[in-house]
Each structure stands twice: as structure tokens, then as C-alpha cells.
């Protein structure tokens, strides 16, 4: 997590570019390696958690505001696609844009209100707001149909430019390729906001708001920026989710999502791109591996217990998360192993 650790494990520039290109190629090629719809669904889940967790880490990790209401933007984004979209006659893409814009606006308002509150009270307040949102979603039957859920959200239809053909998206593999651009955009935004000068400003805000203010960084503006962008991303993701599963339920903003986000981000390494990505990967794949590997399926409750134990253990023994662990291991390997990279 510390600057020093990040620097000591950083690859040279060409190495990073090569790594990024090969990861993108891998992401594009991955579905070709399997014909199993199950595996592709797992990939979509992974992409979804990566987007979700990166957007959450912008707020919790970089702006230091551990919001326990982040999934509200996801859920409301999904409801926007399910309720507003059809009434306004919007298509898949414009639906996602609308959800993103509305959630960014909502976040701006929420941020102005909630960022006046500091410390743990902020976490409590956002949790309260999340509970209110979920209760309303459950009880506003005429709008959300409550726990009956809104069903039959339209599957995306894409008009391919310069042709008259319309592509009806229905196959998991198509959804996977639709989700990738959202992930790439999220990654670009995340890296742009957290690297260089802006990133240092965020660190200053997180570590010590008063000092940040003293050196000319306005904590409120940075926190609002992080929250607005994070909410916009996750709103679009919610819209995507609605068009993917075609059902929207109040559970789309449940506390279980918050706890999973906390687990991914804090176990992976809060405030670290690599950590969050690793965390999202592990916690998307792990349950499926347990299911596929074991003779009997692991119950969701037991899975949650395991998650909880991992989270508490990481907080107690390894506060830097997996990212910090990776840094330490690579540093040790580099010290121990032959230093080949020094030869030209």
C-alpha cells in the first residue's frame, strides 16, 4: 500500500504496457477457451465484481469515505433501466448512460449532505440511508413490485453502425463482450483518478483532511469527485445487470453486496488497483471452485462464514491485504533470486 512498496515492485514502463496488452488479449480470448456457459457466466460475474469493487475503492479506498451505501447506486441504476428505460423508450446504451448520469447526480446530492459528517458517523449514516432505500424498494409495491421483482427487462438490441442489422443480445458470451468495454472504461477512469497529482491529493485527503486542506487540497471536492464518478460507474453497471438477468429485485441493493465489496477491497488491498482486481478475481472464482471441486455444493451461509473469517483475519494480521503480501513476496524473490533484469 505504501508508496515505497509500490515503487519497489513496479515493472519498467515497457513491461507494464506489455502486461496490460496481454491481459486485455487474455480477457478477449478467454471465452474462446471454453464452451461452457457456466464458465462464461463466471467470467461475467468476475468482470462485474471488478467494476463494482473498483468504483467502491475510489470512494472507500482513495477518498477514505467508507460508505456502506454504495450498492444503492447499483440497485437504483438497475431500477432506472427497468422502470424509466421502457417508459422513455431508451435503448441499452442510452439506458446505461441515463443510469450513470442520474446516479452521479444522486451521489452529488448525497455527497454534499453526507460529507458534512465525519468519521464513523459517516459509515453509520450511509448504512442508515442504504437500509431506507432497501425498505422503500421492498415496500413501494406500485413502483418496484417489491419482493415480487420487476421481470422481463428487455435484452439489449444493438444497431451495428453503417449497417441495417440489429444484434439481439441473448447469449452469455455476447454479454461478456458487452461487459468488457465497461470494465476497460472503469479501469481507465480509476487509474486516471488515482495516479499522479490527483492520486496524491486523494491520499492527502484520506490520511489527514485538515492537513490536506492546509496544503490547498479541498477534501470535499475530491471526495465528491470520487463519489460521483464511482456512483456513475456503478449505476451503469446496475443498468447492465438489469438487461443481463432481466429481473430487478430489492436485493440488488442489499447489505450482502456491501459486505462482499468490503471483503474484496479490504482483503485485496484497499486503495490498490492490483489488490482490488486480485480480490475481485478471487472472490468471484473461489465460490465456483468450491462448488465445482467439492463433491457437494458449499452452502451460501458457510461461504459467508469463510469470507467473514478471511476478512477479520486480514484486518487483524495483514492490514495491507493481498496487495501488500504480493509486494513483499516479489521483493523477497527479487532479493533472493538472480537479478536477470539488470542485464541489458
Amino acid at each position: 500500500m505504501s508508496q515505497g512498496a509500490a515503487r519497489s515492485t513496479r515493472l519498467p514502463r515497457w513491461g507494464r504496457v506489455a502486461l496490460a496488452i496481454s491481459l486485455v488479449l487474455l480477457a478477449l480470448a478467454l471465452p474462446r477457451l471454453t464452451s461452457s456457459g457456466y464458465a462464461i457466466n463466471a467470467m461475467i460475474t468476475t468482470v462485474r465484481w471488478m467494476i463494482f469493487a473498483l468504483s467502491f475503492d475510489l470512494v472507500a479506498g482513495h477518498a477514505g469515505a467508507v460508505s456502506l451505501g454504495h450498492p444503492v447506486f447499483f440497485g437504483v441504476g438497475a431500477y432506472v433501466a427497468a422502470i424509466l428505460g421502457p417508459r422513455l423508450g431508451l435503448t441499452f446504451i442510452s439506458d446505461m448512460l441515463l443510469a450513470a448520469v442520474l446516479m452521479a447526480l444522486l451521489a452529488l446530492l448525497a455527497g454534499i449532505a453526507f460529507f458534512r459528517i465525519r468519521g464513523v458517523t459517516f459509515a453509520i449514516g450511509t448504512l442508515g440511508a442504504a437500509i431506507i432505500a432497501q425498505l422503500i424498494a421492498n415496500n413501494a409495491f406500485t413502483i418496484t413490485r417489491g419482493p415480487m421483482c420487476i421481470q422481463g427487462v428487455a435484452r439489449p438490441e444493438l444497431t451495428i453502425p453503417f449497417t441495417e442489422t440489429t444484434l439481439r443480445v441473448a447469449e452469455p458470451i455476447q454479454y461478456y463482450y458487452l461487459s468488457l468495454p465497461l470494465l476497460f472504461i472503469t479501469i481507465i477512469i480509476y487509474l486516471a483518478l488515482t495516479s499522479s497529482r490527483l492520486g496524491r491529493a486523494f491520499t492527502a485527503v484520506r490520511e489527514d483532511e485538515v492537513r490536506a486542506f492546509a496544503v490547498g487540497v479541498s477534501p470535499l471536492r475530491y471526495k465528491l469527485l470520487a463519489l460521483t464518478v464511482g456512483a456513475g460507474i456503478v449505476g451503469a453497471l446496475g443498468s447492465f445487470q438489469a438487461h443481463y438477468v432481466t429481473v430487478v429485485c430489492p436485493s440488488e441493493m442489499s447489505l450482502a453486496l456491501t459486505t462482499t465489496l468490503l471483503i474484496i477491497v479490504f482483503v485485496g488491498g484497499v486503495g490498490s488497483f492490483r489488490g482490488v482486481m486480485i480480490g475481485a478475481l478471487i472472490f468471484s472464482i473461489l465460490p465456483r471452485l468450491l462448488e465445482a471441486g467439492g463433491t457437494q455444493a458449499i452452502s451460501p451461509a458457510l461461504q459467508q462464514v469463510v469470507y467473514g473469517v478471511i476478512l477479520v483475519a486480514v484486518m487483524v494480521f495483514m492490514p495491507g491485504g493481498l496487495d501488500d503480501l504480493v509486494s513483499r513476496v516479489t521483493r523477497r524473490l527479487r532479493k533472493a533470486g538472480p537479478r536477470e533484469e539488470q542485464q541489458p
Partner: peptide
């Protein structure tokens, strides 16, 4: 907050 939320999940 995160640790005690973890305890709560468990």
C-alpha cells in the same frame, strides 16, 4: 468498522 462488520457476517 470493517472488522466488526466481518464479525457480524460470521
Amino acid at each position: 468498522a470493517v472488522t466488526t462488520l466481518g464479525l457480524s457476517i460470521i
